[in-house]
Design a binder for these strands. Sequence first.
RNA 1: UGACCGAUGGUGUAAUGGUAACACAGGAGAUUUUGGUUCUCUUAUUCAGGGUUCGAAUCCUUGUCGGUCAACCA
Length: 558
Amino acid sequence: MTEESKEVKSLNFLEEIIETDLREGKNGGRVLTRFPPEPNGYLHLGHAKSICLNFGLAKQYNGQTNLRFDDTNPVTEETEYVDSIKADINWLGFQWASERYASDYFPQLFQFAKKLIQAGLAYVDDSSAEEIAAQKGTPTEPGTESPYRNRSVEENLDLFERMKAGEFPDGSRVLRAKVDMASPNMHMRDPLLYRIKHAHHHRTGDEWCIYPMYDFAHGQSDSIEEITHSICTLEFIPHRPLYDWLIEKLEIFPSHQYEFARLNLTYTVMSKRKLLKLVNEGHVSGWDDPRMPTLSGVRRRGYTPEAIRDFCERIGVAKRDNLIDIGYLEFFVREHLNKIAARVMVVLDPDPIKVVITNYPEGQTESLSIENNPENPEDGSRLVPFSREILVERDDFMENPPKKFFRLAPGNLVRLKGAYIIRCDEVVKDADGKVTELRCSYVPESKSGEDTSGLKVQGTIHWVNAADAVPVEVRLYDRLFKVEDLSEAEGDFQDYLNPDSLSVVQAFAEPAVASIKGPYQFLRKGYFSLDTDSTDQKLVFNRTVGLKDSWAKDQKKK
RNA sequence: UGACCGAUGGUGUAAUGGUAACACAGGAGAUUUUGGUUCUCUUAUUCAGGGUUCGAAUCCUUGUCGGUCAACCA
């Protein structure tokens, strides 16, 4: 045994629970988790945490994970969502053992309900929604019993069958568990088990007009599938006594529920309800708008599954509320993209400055070989055209530069990335004093890779050959909201939307962009991805995340 | 004025009665044909009071603060 050579890795509380169960031989050493989305919206980064946990834990302990759609509310659920959810999970890199639907269990659930009725533990209640709400009492006051609470088993059975048969209109009756109206736990005050909804279900069609509530579907589905560890978020803690009560009374497989703190990120919202609202009110272009924290959104933006998985692993899991800096996620995105992104030069400026290299022969063009990724030489190199006239960003020139400005300025030497060292000799302006052209001279023996000039320059800038510059559209994204903590913000969350979360800029790219597939690093600018809006006529790029920019940070401080 | 859950650097997460650590962020420097990357160094932490103990972030107790729960949603 190499026990002592093993690194002591600390366990999170879920790993501890599982290891204890395994040690005690619970469930015969079997670990089966489930990921249980409701198909009423797109998956977001909060779900990513849950997916990584459920699938990750199972994998870690030689177990498996079921994908189960919690489709018990036909009015909000759609097949479109089912498809997107499956695509997102696969994209994240996980495979489920079995694809299940709570709706598959409707017949079984109906039998469970009858069993409860027969045991005198459930009853049909004719009270209205308002009356039931009033009966529930408040967190500080006990509830009162429904006048229908003590119907006979026979009457309950008859009524429940007739509910199923469609004899009653929506809202006229419900099936309730008979637990304890005085319980300090609101969820134990005779919770609703079934309600009448004459609605078309995305899978069962019009077969049913009564549908089980979450509390009578989720735990029972877990049990039917013999899920060993049912992992959910903190707000379900008060449901756990009911979860256990139903399993005990039904005498079915004892799945167990464990709760962790959901993911919250700065400058964004993470609830399907709010995200739906952003989509419906047109604040974003859709569920996959690159500013959205949905998986389809961040995918389109250029985040990688690897980065998201690393992030989820690194943030850990615990039971205390948290608000994680969105910058932490961005760190993992940069870390991964730095290793794989193809470097290209793009002048990110609709109004670039033309640089004329006065001592370079007119009409001559040469091809320079530039590495695609200095982090990974195996990625090879590409050819980049260079000639007498090139384009550079206006930000890379200053007529009266501050100390430590290493870019173009009158008399300054800079290296053109992958090309030559140039000196700015003359600034040409128009009648308004706007700089229209820089006249520079190049040092022929400073060619990249074969530099014999002996010159040392402090700055290197990117550029594109004027004659070959490809006009492209680049979409720059900023945080979706103006405030860090939306949970602290008063009023409507839409009031805090950042009006500058999207800016579109026309830019000029080196010709190679058209033939290289992303992800890209636009040199000195950031990581970018090709957007799905691209056409043969026009390439559209999304800024995934910017590069760290210590120069800009320093400037800001001043 | 109930029940339940929680409280460790700026943000997350460890330390499971025995030297409070790791990542990010912040700061300083080195390297660099990306003001990127990489490397080195560095600032900063146990909610409060009481108790148990040789020894407490950890156990007990009281309090404080934060969160959750009163959908025919999940």
